[in-house]
Design a protein around this nucleic acid. Sequence first.
DNA 1: CTGTATCCGGATGGATACTG
DNA 2: CAGTATCCATCCGGATACAG
Lengths: 104, 104
Amino acid sequence: MYAAQCPCRDVLDLLANKWAALAIGALESGPLRFGELQRRLEGISPKVLTQTLRRLEDAGFLHREIFPAVPLHVEYSLTDLGHSVSVPLASLRTWVESHLHEIT
Amino acid sequence: MYAAQCPCRDVLDLLANKWAALAIGALESGPLRFGELQRRLEGISPKVLTQTLRRLEDAGFLHREIFPAVPLHVEYSLTDLGHSVSVPLASLRTWVESHLHEIT
DNA sequence: CTGTATCCGGATGGATACTG
DNA sequence: CAGTATCCATCCGGATACAG
């Protein structure tokens, strides 16, 4: 099975928090700005959104691009790696949607 | 996207903790006893293992069967629902394994 | 607009010892 | 064997206010 040191656990942990999978899903169809992400991830606070995005960025799943304008403009987009992982994540979300009625 | 009340979030949370996905994976190939599970999920304490198993059982992903013998014998196995969700989970694990080298 | 600072509560995970 | 009891540390998420 998976030994204690298996790094896959870290990845699972990364993807396995309340917002990460949702954030990746939100970015599947294209880049979004901070505020737009916050609106789509209904209920997330700016602090938690930042945390989530930073973790995903550090892991290489998404890219943050700053457009130095006034007002400030920042865009988040999936990297190739991010698009790649969004496939199994989407299949998990799909499973959840189609089995919701069976879950207690 | 996914509204705040969308129950899929709860399911994601359930699957998305340190051990749940691993436990489901361990049971894919057949029933296991408590002690055997603890050995396979290297490093888990009995308390946390119990918590994990109970949550999965309550959600209907696995079944707990007691064989009243001496010494006591308890077997955990996936329900149909559990086997069903193990498919997308396995694809996520597979993704992680094949992309580990790309992850920071 | 895009965050950071602060403070807080609760859940999760963990070590160890003990029990039916 | 299969857990439960206890106590504890930490991370995570959340509300609100404020800053570059």
